[in-house]
Write a protein that binds this DNA or RNA. Structure first.
Lengths: 343, 343
DNA sequence: GTTAGCACTCCATATTAAAGAGTGCTAACA
DNA sequence: TGTTAGCACTCTTTAATATGGAGTGCTAAC
């Protein structure tokens, strides 16, 4: 059987109405709400066909119909209106935070959660490989030393090191020179024993300080737990009765606490299932490949700060989420973010 | 009327039983569970007295009794057994994170949530006043500059500044010298126009760079949003039926998302209502002074990293929380933390 | 191809009934 | 005077039972 124009229109009405109300949609409602001028009986015949084709189902006999995943997929792929969403311009507000990526991303998550009424998560930027670009130690007061490392992705780490020896101005210069010439451009695998020995040899008496600095450098380079995830609006789950069957919601809320789990979600959402809109993907129900989310849908987008430095934004809601609005909002926000990152 | 030994024993049984089950406690249960060898009728008489004295109430006629806030207060103040809780020694695990306070505190929150089954929050260390202790700019590559500021509490801030002018080695030294001599020891109120002008005058041609550095310094000094709050186990609220009346829990969960709100809770809990145990405070129901928490209790403790640098740990659960365990666990953890911070 | 009509199904809601838990009171007992 | 058994009473919880409504599927007529 083929999807006639009329069937599509009816399906669309079912989906839209269900998105709004969350209740199964009956034939009479459609008969009244469309401009097709058909009686409920005719609609019933068509609905019967649609059910056979797998686009809608009845939760039980003598109930209205609700859309299946297949219907949502069709809706997202072809039926989304291309409406321009008026996203309150938060660019200015964001720009003022641009210096501190973490604060900015937190803000982004909040903004999306408030605007869409769904749960939102944003993963912090990931870097491919990390190398030492610049390293420096400076005395701060009589018994502490400030060590600063800049990585090639311009991430800066610093730490105050306590020392119990006095380092002369002159030695300090020398140490800095050695550290920079030897370590510059190395990643963590390059920092082997040979390198370390070579530094210590040159450094002479200050091996202890070198040790501390190297340890710190090692941490900065390997540190994987700097993978930050910002979430917002998790309580929005409670707004949707079909999700708040308690045990399920609890699991979702738990996942939002255990940020690591969220990262798995985002990772699972690889580009295998893109929708048409440039770099925004929609996953419906089981398409998320995550079992706890089988009753949810997820919309993700990838932001890019610059080459090789990217992160993900995700919005999670019930399957009957307002895809239209979510996609538009996200799209609009991405444009604003792009502009900000260009500077 | 006075609280006889027997009444106390009965009250204690009521509280204990209610803490466990969450159900109103009837006279027969008590008659069986105590070693008083009294019939339920006698217990009923005593309970009638206790009700009159305000320690217990009936949710409705012909139901058992449940403790009032007054009873909990008495329980916490006098009836807590001084049992030593076997807190799994996480000191080692924590020690490895001691370098990064934020990670450590996050861990503490998680540990407590898991061990107590209540929601936990930990506020990051607060500092009294902040002054500039050390400031430095260094070239990183041809068009960027690394600015580092160390505050008197040893907090370090850094930022990469983009520049479009070339600064000679010599000028760099001069700028650093000026910045340090003029700004050292100043707090944000001291950095007035006069100071700024004086710096710029001395700096000569590099006013632009100075501007950027000063702005950053200003941010570092005023920044109040570096107040971090770590939470864990918020979903534990859902485990207690008396809290999960949905609308109320939602509000609590919301508060846990909006970390700023939590801070207000912690601030509201000032030392006005301490219990006997050294620096651990228990707030029951309305004692929290926060309306959304009138059905909860909160146990807080103050940790101190060193003089003037402190933060708070709080555990929130239903009024019928296991005070005994919570207080002991917290106490034990505080000891372990103290040890760690001593180094 | 479309529509009106009708029997049927299932859910949601209200009503009623029954069972259980617990109290308060009274009267008897040590 | 304190303790206890017994009993009537209250209120909640649970189950069982109606009742109404929404919606469908089918048939027959247009």
């Amino acid at each position: 059987m083929e999807l006639s124009k009329r069937k599509i229109k009816i399906l669309q009405t079912i989906i839209r109405t269900y998105l709004e109300t969350g209740e199964p949609v009956g034939s009479r409602t459609i008969s009244k709400d469309t401009d097709l001028n058909l009686s409920s009986a005719t609609i019933r015949n068509e609905m019967s066909d649609l059910e056979e084709m797998g686009y809608i189902i009845q939760p039980h006999t003598s109930a209205g119909r609700i859309p299946t995943d297949k219907a949502y997929r069709l809706y997202v792929d072809t039926m989304l209106a291309d409406k321009e969403v008026e996203v309150q311009n938060i660019k200015e507000e964001l720009e003022s935070k641009a210096g501190r990526i973490d604060v900015l991303l937190k803000q982004v998550a909040r903004f999306l959660a408030i605007n869409t009424n769904y749960a939102t998560m944003v993963s912090g930027p990931r870097y491919k490989s990390k190398k030492v670009k610049f390293i420096q130690i400076t005395p701060v007061d009589e018994n502490s030393l400030l060590a600063v490392i800049v990585l090639d992705n311009n991430v800066v780490r610093n730490q105050i090191l306590k020392i119990d020896e006095i380092i002369e101005q002159e030695d300090m210069l020398k140490l800095n020179f050695i550290l920079n010439t030897v370590l510059n451009g190395l990643d963590v695998t390059d920092m082997n024993l040979a390198v370390i020995r070579s530094i210590k040899e040159q450094a002479g008496s200050h091996a202890k300080v070198i040790d501390a600095v190297l340890e710190m450098a090692g941490n900065a380079l390997t540190e994987d737990d700097d993978l930050q995830i910002y979430t917002s609006g998790a309580t929005n789950f409670l707004k949707y009765p079909e999700l708040s069957s308690k045990s399920e919601t609890t699991e979702l809320l738990n996942a939002f606490e255990e940020k690591k789990i969220i990262n798995n979600w985002l990772e699972a959402a690889e580009q295998d299932n893109g929708s048409e809109t440039h770099d925004i993907q929609v996953y419906i129900g089981n398409e998320t490949k995550v079992d706890t989310m089988k009753d949810c849908s997820m919309v993700t987008a990838t932001y890019k700060i610059h080459e090789g430095v990217y992160g993900k934004i995700g919005i999670i809601g019930p399957k009957r989420m307002d895809y239209d609005k979510v996609v538009s909002t996200l799209q609009s926000l991405m444009t604003q973010l792009d502009d900000i990152f260009k500077n």
